[in-house]
Design a protein around this nucleic acid. Structure first.
Lengths: 344, 344
DNA sequence: TTGTAGGCGTTATCAT
DNA sequence: ATGATAACGCCTACAA
């Protein structure tokens, strides 16, 4: 039952009557070690089941080959896609991933940042909690010049890189599309506009309205947590309005779906009575009837880009990103939920 | 631009004119250190921004306070729920998580196991790749008595604990439900039966058929990768059959949904022509029309249970799990997709 | 081509 | 109540 002792380079050295240095070098395929010696080392290492001790190595090298990931929630289609993308790119290059979720709490986010710092991650990949309003809890990282990359939910900081889509433009496109379909009373369901993503989407929404001389109405903007349940609740509010809206742009698909389902249940026809546009291109958009028009952008790609960028940063000390912000492509996917005019 | 040097306990010791030992003890709230000294230590540590070095500590203690997670895919609703559950339970107890996905490849699984071993994780939480047929790649862990916990996709091993639901029973219930609805030609769409989950579900399916004197037909079992696309492909196969099935039990919701959508498009009525039961209670089940009957079990809970079990194992050396297998609850959620008789 | 020595930051042991 | 020392496993500057 007792644990076997670790097999170390010293064990190999002793058995082979050489020094630990030689073993260390041999294992790293160092050019100054003879082929013969290397072979002996590798063979014995294999036979003894030797495995390099990541911690000893990290301690010595001041490099951990590990990145930290902090996201608001792990269990959304978008976030898990991002993480899958990160994992793919990082693993390919031999980096491990330490992971934590902030559960949308700035406080928990800060505590995870501390843990990651203690773990001496080589870099951080972060999507901010909805209530995070400043980056002071990342100061330790900035001070030590450990790269921090924000994706999707970002904040500007001179020492960090942001990876995201053009939320303003996407929201503008979404809203203009609704207007082109003949909508004039267009609501916007979104999250607290502390975060760039929601602030920019609101901006794009307003811009499209303004451009078409549609008056912006404060009461047409509903702030929620964007859950499916929240969508259903908003539906109730809507049903109580004197005049129904004729179009809704929602900042997230599952919330849109929750709202659509609840409205349909009350006999509202989509898109005839109310047209819908969501955000994220969650698989559920192609399941709901009618299929939900949405903004498509790849979380997987965003994860890969973020990870690769971080790897460059870490690998090449002199690496300086030419820009502070990387904008990924997004596109409007037009589906039945917004096609008032029946054309396809 | 150069990194600041690490702040160590020596820096604190020097400034306070005490020994590093005392600082170390003070930081750990050791009882033999005076209140006054402790306060001085904490204050200075705070002021200097001291952060304990996880690696040095791990190296010294032979404990990392880190668990490894290896799952087939990160981006499914079920898996991300499990991981969220693990994160919740682990973080609560101060454990970090190293994460990797096998992408359903036994080979990549093995490589991740190696990485985790090198990182000296204190324990492993694993859901096996679909093509994993033996546990030889975990031998290093077993030999060193590092706990390995399998969940959902498990294999028996004397040195490990399995956490899962009673797949046979769940499949039996699902199939019997279809039979009770009057179905007689019941198909089963599932994944390769190398894995316990699919083997057991097939068993339960057969058992229910047998009990109701319905002959088992080999050609009614379709092996796929259970993706939504695969579901659509199976739909095509079905449409070519001389006699259509009148019920289908699918091993996973998204595949069921893919199949339903494709069939509906061809004018097949659900549940009148073909009744459906899925598996997992993915949110999409309540979006598709008609809503999909499914087997509900909580990934979040499974993750929590797995993590807590692992923590007990690690915390208490003498901890011996009374059983080798933990069965969690699952239940049939009856929805419209399987209600031929229109009763609700 | 190989070896020696010292140190990365922490903590347990044994003193004082 | 506090300190000196060694050790965890590895790597690198320097030496041979």
């Amino acid at each position: 039952m007792a644990n076997e002792r670790e097999v170390t380079i010293y064990d190999i050295a002793r058995e082979l009557n050489i020094s630990a240095t030689t073993v260390s070098r041999g294992l790293q395929d160092h050019p100054t070690i003879s082929k013969k010696t290397k072979k002996k080392i590798f063979d014995l290492a294999e036979r003894l089941g030797y495995r390099s001790n990541h911690f000893a190595r990290s301690l010595r090298n001041q490099k951990t080959n590990t990145f930290g990931i902090i996201v608001p929630r792990l269990n959304s289609h978008f976030m898990s896609s991002v993480i899958a993308g990160i994992e793919n790119a990082a693993n390919e290059q031999g980096f491990s991933l330490l992971i934590a979720q902030s559960s949308e709490s700035s406080e928990k986010e800060a505590s995870s940042v501390r843990t990651m710092f203690d773990s001496r991650v080589d870099g951080l990949l972060v999507s901010l909690a909805v209530d995070t309003t400043d980056l002071s809890h990342f100061e330790h990282f900035f001070k030590k010049n450990i790269p921090v990359i924000f994706f999707d939910r970002v904040m500007q900081h001179e020492n960090s890189v942001n990876i995201l889509i053009d939320n303003r433009q996407a929201a503008y496109n979404a809203t203009r599309h609704l207007i082109e379909q003949g909508c004039r009373r267009i609501m916007h369901i979104t999250a607290p506009t502390l975060q760039n993503v929601y602030k920019d989407r609101l901006k794009g929404y307003k811009e499209a309205l303004g451009e078409h001389k549609i008056k912006f109405r404060e009461d047409y903007v509903v702030i929620t947590n964007l859950s499916q349940e929240a969508g259903a609740e908003v539906a109730n509010t809507i049903l109580k309005m004197k005049t129904l809206p004729d179009g809704i742009f929602v900042s997230n698909d599952s919330c849109a779906v929750g709202c659509m389902l609840a409205l349909k249940e009350q006999g509202i026809r989509i898109p005839e009575d109310i047209a819908f546009v969501g955000f994220n291109n969650d698989p559920v958009t192609k399941v709901i009837e009618p299929h939900l028009t949405t903004i498509n952008y790849s979380g997987y790609e965003m994860g890969q880009v973020a990870a690769r960028h971080l790897i460059n940063h870490v690998r090449d000390v002199s690496f300086v990103s030419s820009t502070n912000t990387i904008i990924l492509r997004s596109e409007l996917m037009v589906r039945a939920s917004s096609l008032k005019q029946g054309r396809k």
